[in-house]
């Protein structure tokens, strides 16, 4: 696969991933385009620059691990893994998303895609699993790291804060959490459902290193991941400031596209915008 630090190349990959997301959810006639589009740069930066992994050898023992705890954003993960060239995520089957027999299940399922590190979909659990992986790496004296993407609405789940306490207390500094802070959840705006602010203060109070990148600025994300790697003695959380539905004008900041797929006409318009 083509790993790169080049911003123009990474941006081009991100644009392609966005097109996949629109086409996949359009073909499926269901799914979660908004929260997939908001996490594109985060996943592209991780998979194409930051993470040590080898799509040709998905069980490589020293690979970095990735967990999409906000499993409903499965389309972005599928599209990114497909572009990386994992054998169990073929590009030409992306549009079978959510169809009977497809490897592209509604939420990530490692029974269908063994290259996945975890099966997710029930919110609030991925951070704990990531920290368990981090403990294992530390016990084995290994340098591999674990990355976990959380939804902003997801961190309303109590288990997240159990895990946050645990991660700081046990100094699990090889785990990086990324909150995709797009400020919208299923029923509306986060501030109207269950406000999270002051969010950075909450994580700091729980003992985490906090970095606040622009989640659509790849250079900003690269810098944030570098800071996370340099932080020792405590875990790091990136509060990635993002826009739900990013890249498609009529989806941006529109709560409707949390869990509604674009119509064929909307797919056509979106693909024009993403050309």
């Amino acid at each position: 696969m083509r790993k790169t630090k080049d911003l123009a190349q990474l941006q081009a990959i991100a644009r392609g991933v966005r097109r996949h997301i629109v086409e996949m959810t359009g073909a499926a006639k269901s799914g979660h385009p908004g929260g997939s589009l908001s996490a594109v740069e985060t996943l592209v930066t991780l998979y194409f620059d930051v993470m040590n992994h080898d799509p040709a050898n998905p069980r490589w023992a020293d690979r970095d691990r990735f967990i999409l705890s906000k499993g409903h954003a499965a389309p972005v993960l599928y599209a990114v893994m497909a572009e990386c060239g994992y054998a169990d995520t073929p590009v030409d089957q992306l549009n079978t998303l959510r169809k009977l027999g497809s490897v592209y299940q509604g939420h990530p399922d490692r029974r269908f895609i063994p290259s996945l590190e975890a099966s997710t979909g029930s919110l609030g659990q991925g951070l704990s699993v990531a920290i368990g992986m981090g403990l294992a790496a530390r016990l084995d004296g290994k340098a591999w790291r674990t990355y976990v993407v959380l939804g902003d609405g997801e961190i309303q789940e109590g288990q997240i804060w159990e895990a946050a306490m645990f991660g700081a207390f046990h100094k699990v500094d090889n785990v990086v959490a990324i909150v995709d802070y797009n400020r919208i959840q299923l029923d509306g705006f986060v501030k109207d459902i269950m406000e999270l602010e002051p969010l950075a203060d909450k994580w700091r109070a729980f003992g985490w290193q906090v970095v606040e990148p622009d989640g659509h600025d790849i250079a900003s994300l690269q810098k944030a991941f570098a800071e996370a790697a340099a932080t020792k003695g405590k875990p790091t959380v990136l509060i990635a400031h993002t826009i739900k539905g990013k890249g498609v004008s009529f989806m941006e900041n529109n709560p409707k596209f949390h869990g509604v797929a674009p119509t064929p006409a909307e797919v056509e318009q979106a693909l024009k915008e993403l050309a």
Binding site: R65, A118, S128, V129, A130, G132, G134, A136, Q159, F166
Partner: peptide
């Protein structure tokens, strides 16, 4: 879930 991560690794 911590145990799950430990087992996964």
């Amino acid at each position: 879930a911590i145990a799950s991560g430990l087992a996964a690794a």
